Computed example of a mutant assay.
Amino acid sequence: MVESNNDPRAELLFADGVKWVDDAPDESIDVLIIDSTDPVGPAEGLFKTDFLKRCHRILKSGGVMVQQSESPLYHTGSIIRELRNDMLEAGFDSVATLPFPQPVYPSGWWSVTLAGKAIDVNAFREQAAANHALPLEYYSVEAHRGALALPPFMRKAFAVE
């Protein structure tokens, strides 16, 4: 992974994320990844509509935001559902939550929620795969579709058909 830290297409920042987003130019970012602490105390604002609107402002059309979104087992009906709703209220066109195993956390299961600006995050990898023939050994469109599949209790909580 160290090699990817030197990729000229990416910039890793360890800074005050709120200030950085506030100072960033409009529509200047392709992908915004927020791996914050839990949404309490100083990080609480990173999960609210006001901050998400500012993230939407700096994303380019076709841009994607990814936010860690807590445990599906403990927070589907509260934090995750509220984050999804706040992302849509902030102006994002689509949202998708991806649950995944994470054995170091208490529930053993965690999630990230994606939000797209002028792009459907439920299909953007399929669109990219159709446009680029990459020689991949592990990733496939089918594997990505599987990652987007929500268990019934999450589908019900998000009112996803």
Rank of each mutant, 00 (worst) to 15 (best):
54 R>L: 04
5 N>L: 08
99 P>Q: 11
116 G>R: 07
53 K>V: 00
109 W>Q: 06
76 T>H: 01
96 A>K: 03
135 P>M: 01
153 F>K: 02
61 S>K: 15
76 T>D: 00
101 P>V: 05
138 Y>C: 04
125 R>G: 14
20 W>C: 05
158 F>Y: 15
111 S>H: 07
94 S>F: 09
10 A>Y: 14
65 M>H: 06
31 V>K: 14
119 I>R: 15
65 M>C: 13
125 R>S: 14
22 D>K: 12
140 S>I: 07
129 A>R: 11
8 P>I: 06
92 F>D: 07
27 E>R: 12
15 A>F: 01
78 S>A: 02
123 A>L: 01
79 I>C: 14
138 Y>G: 06
84 R>I: 01
109 W>L: 13
84 R>V: 02
91 G>E: 13
29 I>R: 10
107 S>D: 09
74 Y>V: 03
49 T>D: 08
20 W>Y: 10
47 F>Y: 15
56 H>T: 01
98 L>C: 10
3 E>Q: 15
103 P>N: 09
117 K>A: 10
52 L>F: 09
63 G>H: 09
67 Q>C: 11
85 N>Q: 13
156 K>Y: 00
40 V>W: 08
79 I>P: 08
101 P>Q: 02
158 F>E: 04
8 P>V: 04
52 L>H: 06
43 A>C: 15
129 A>K: 07
66 V>A: 15
44 E>D: 07
84 R>D: 08
131 N>M: 13
56 H>R: 05
92 F>P: 03
161 E>K: 13
34 I>C: 14
136 L>D: 02
50 D>L: 07
83 L>I: 12
3 E>N: 14
22 D>S: 14
35 D>G: 00
107 S>W: 01
81 R>P: 02
71 S>I: 06
41 G>A: 05
7 D>T: 04
62 G>M: 07
128 A>T: 11
150 L>K: 10
83 L>W: 09
86 D>H: 13
37 T>V: 02
156 K>L: 02
86 D>Q: 07
104 V>W: 12
154 M>D: 01
131 N>V: 07
142 E>V: 09
119 I>A: 12
144 H>L: 01
131 N>F: 04
20 W>A: 09
98 L>N: 05
83 L>N: 15
152 P>F: 10
81 R>K: 12
117 K>M: 03
75 H>G: 00
53 K>L: 00
146 G>S: 14
139 Y>R: 03
76 T>W: 04
90 A>S: 04
11 E>T: 08
75 H>S: 13
161 E>A: 14
124 F>G: 00
107 S>E: 05
37 T>G: 10
103 P>A: 08
71 S>N: 05
33 I>H: 14
57 R>D: 07
91 G>N: 06
117 K>L: 05
68 Q>C: 11
141 V>E: 09
76 T>E: 00
123 A>S: 11
6 N>W: 06
59 L>T: 02
123 A>F: 00
17 G>E: 02
